[in-house]
Design a protein around this nucleic acid. Sequence first.
RNA 1: GCUCUCGUAGUUCAAUGGAUAGAAUAGAGGUUUCCUAAACCUUCGAUUCAGGUUCGACUCCUGACGAGAGCACCA
Length: 547
Amino acid sequence: MEDRIRTAIQEALAELGAREASFEVEWPTELAHGDFATNAALATSKRLGKPPREIADALVPRLKEALGDAVERVEAAGPGFVNITLAPATIASIIETAATSDAWGKGSAQEGRRVMVEYSCPNPFKEMHIGHLMSTVIGEAVSRVIENGGAEVIRDSYGGDVGPHVAKALWALRRDGVTDVASATEVDAAYARGARAYEASEEAKAEIDALNQEIYRGEDPALMDLWSTCREVCLEAFRDLYRALGTHFDYYLFESETAPIGMRVVGDGLARGVFTESEGAVIYDGEKKGLHTLVFITSRGTPTYEAKDIGLAFLKEEKVAPDESIIITAAEQVGHFKVFLAALEDIAPLVARKTSHIPHGFMRLTTGKMSSREGNTITAKGLIEEVMERAKEKNDDPLIASAVAIAAVKYMVLRQASGGDIVFDPEQSLSLDGDSGPYLQYAYVRAKKLLAYDAESAGGKEPLAPYAVERLIIRFPGVAARAERERAPHHIAQYLTRLAGEWNSFYANEQVLGSDEEAYKQRVARAFARTMEKGLALLGIPVPERM
RNA sequence: GCUCUCGUAGUUCAAUGGAUAGAAUAGAGGUUUCCUAAACCUUCGAUUCAGGUUCGACUCCUGACGAGAGCACCA
């Protein structure tokens, strides 16, 4: 429909003397303004040398003729907008599609593309904290939104299984004589002990630094045994959480794999003059591009995060060779990421150009920033369990409580644009009311209930005009397309909340079962339920059948 | 000090350069003989400041003020 309107406007503008003018077809925020609107008259006013209102008035009859029965009203409004209101029959036919078609809301802009999305990325040897939870939730939603656009999405999580944090954890375990590790929590606690010792004692610092290099060499069998046990225990805990969150990864990539590749590529780059040596370290001079200068290989000969990221880019090429590569990390890394991309641009420009970065904010506690070194973290698991307790107050069934808790946590992250911090106020964030995931689920559950009744002998009348909720339902494909284009799932969250509100008003004001328009209203309910279900699925939020 | 991000109702967030800046929550008041009141309805309340670009600016540009993050051997 949107394409048809766009074409009609193009032709009408050509007739008026503005061939190939640029204009927008938009969805007015205000439903009273119609289903579509265009700024074509405003955009061409200067070029045609006429006031916008006059052009709008000239467009109206032309668009009416071109669109025929499909529209009910075309009218000029405001400073020179042309508002288009679809005919009830047009809306009814879209509602029918929404109620029955499996392809409802599916896009095609990404057809045939292979997109790699990297997210979550917790480090083994630590517990997953709420920062990684944010990344996981956003990454899964971004992946699904792109998949909905027709792309094949390959998910990967990248973790640091070598490096100073690992040395700290293993050092503490060995010092305390621990040989068998049963839980991720134990490893995490050992990391915190090691980190404190590293700060407090010169001797410990020296030992940990030596151990770090020993781990990179990987030649001590007893040490590597402990290393791999700890890594596996942590990964198992991650997988448990991913199952609960409805995420899976096609690849788990590790720094132990990317480090040697990074060393080699940076070494080559050094020979070619991309990197330089300074104070015994290999650096990239970012200042020539207005960025920071960062160390890629330390003076001790170990690769830093940046060198490993270079190795990672090459590893992804080898394993997947995606058309587009998206990396989702905390916003504190944007500076490092820019330097990494600048260096990659010098080494492998084609790879650099298809790589992009989506930053997300911190999840802040009301008490301030958390740090795994200080030990004042909220783990991802801990947060979910806390919300689960709250959800159980209203749901006896643990499966439903779990679906509600996951929805509450995910919605809290996805309701706002990625990039900003989330202030985690336990009281407010744990609320299941209002602008929340459970609010959406509840609206869905109520609609589903209406569909449990057979409408065979139902009232067959039609209402005088389509309901507001119908006018919102038909916008779903456009919203999904925008979310995909901008890689911004929060547009879907915002839309679903508005949709649920409109549905709840409908539900409160209109009797459905037993009414004269029962069949019609059930179809609206079905279209709403399916739109909500598909929209929530794009966000990775589960839908319970009752609450 | 330099770089980046951000300043919207009391609070937490929206707003494709467009029309009367939307929600939620908090406050005030109301709705259940009817499909789940985790709901609905009414009401109060905001673009940090000063310039500029534009037919039109929360959005783009400049400056001031304020907040956060980053800035060489952590990730």
